[in-house]
Design a binder for these strands. Structure first.
Lengths: 159, 159
DNA sequence: CTCCAGTGGTTTCATAATGAAACTAAGTTG
DNA sequence: CAACTTAGTTTCATTATGAAACCACTGGAG
């Protein structure tokens, strides 16, 4: 086989997400959808991508249950693309990507926008991973455990 | 031009991250590196990917400052690939992807592992976006503000 | 109802990326 | 130094991407 690798059915949850949203455009489409865009033409002109690619991506996102089509809210016969709860659930992923750029990009001054708390207009906090008891967790403070057994699979060195 | 789209220099921080890690393999390589893998052969056999693709990705990740090469720690003349702080900074992105799968995947029973707090062996908390004052923020509770102005760019409807 | 611009695509074709396999060149082992 | 391992590169077939042309349906003007 020479087909492009698929991660469908892979046991790794990260691979499974990438299967759905791990391409160049999907997350940007979702970002625009979170921002309020709904119509094919809006996505196309805002993202500046080829229409065939956009059509393919929208179809895939609908197939994955991330977007759904609905009759246009303006009363016209066209339809629009709305985020499902699953689609809206990608928000932390987008925030994590944004904050990674803000923290590590070589030219952060080129970043045009800041994500703020709508009510106060103040920048949001950085995402933090915490234990059940609230302790802040770095990568090395975590481990991967098989789902239904108690045998630990250790995370090794990787300082 | 028919070249593949590049997001380099794009003002959107999400596009900028995708430029570096937005392809099928990069995040999986980083995940394995976080788990402790260092050597070309380790990545290749663990991920099962073509060697030419792996070589290209590793080179790109090094170019982006996510990995760095170092003399092998086992004393041999080979070198190994280590995460930089920028590389380790992707941890929240990986956690967000994982948690999204856990929450929304159609077949969560196929997910093999749980991310736990190493010390207690208990599952970690879900990532949460919070305001400066600690309020939990949903997508609609946020807005995007231009970097150096105070003019607000509203997030509109979008459920 | 007819014409015509706008919307939302599909088709076509050239180029780029991916992947499998063969090949290569050091490093390492006996 | 012969054989094997490691870490790639090269080659070639297939797939994905992207630009542009094309097309069907919508919605409004007259």
């Amino acid at each position: 086989m020479v087909k492009r690798t698929s991660f469908e059915g892979d046991a790794c949850p990260i691979a499974r997400s990438l299967e759905a949203i791990g391409d160049w455009w999907s997350l940007l489409i979702i970002r625009e959808a979170l921002f309020g865009l709904r119509r094919f033409g809006e996505f196309q002109s805002k993202l500046g991508m080829a229409k065939n690619i956009l059509a393919a991506r929208l179809r895939a996102l609908v197939d994955h249950g991330i977007l759904e089509t609905a009759p246009a809210s303006d009363g016209s016969a066209y339809s629009e693309y709305l985020l499902t709860p699953k689609g809206r659930g990608t928000f932390p992923i987008l925030v994590a990507l944004r904050q990674w750029s803000e923290a590590f990009d070589d030219h952060p001054e080129e970043i045009a926008t800041i994500l703020v708390d709508r009510e106060k207009g103040r920048p949001v906090r950085k995402l933090e991973l915490r234990a059940e008891d609230g302790r802040l967790l770095a990568p090395d403070d975590t481990a991967l455990k098989p789902r239904r057994s108690s045998k630990m699979v250790g995370r090794s060195r990787s300082g």
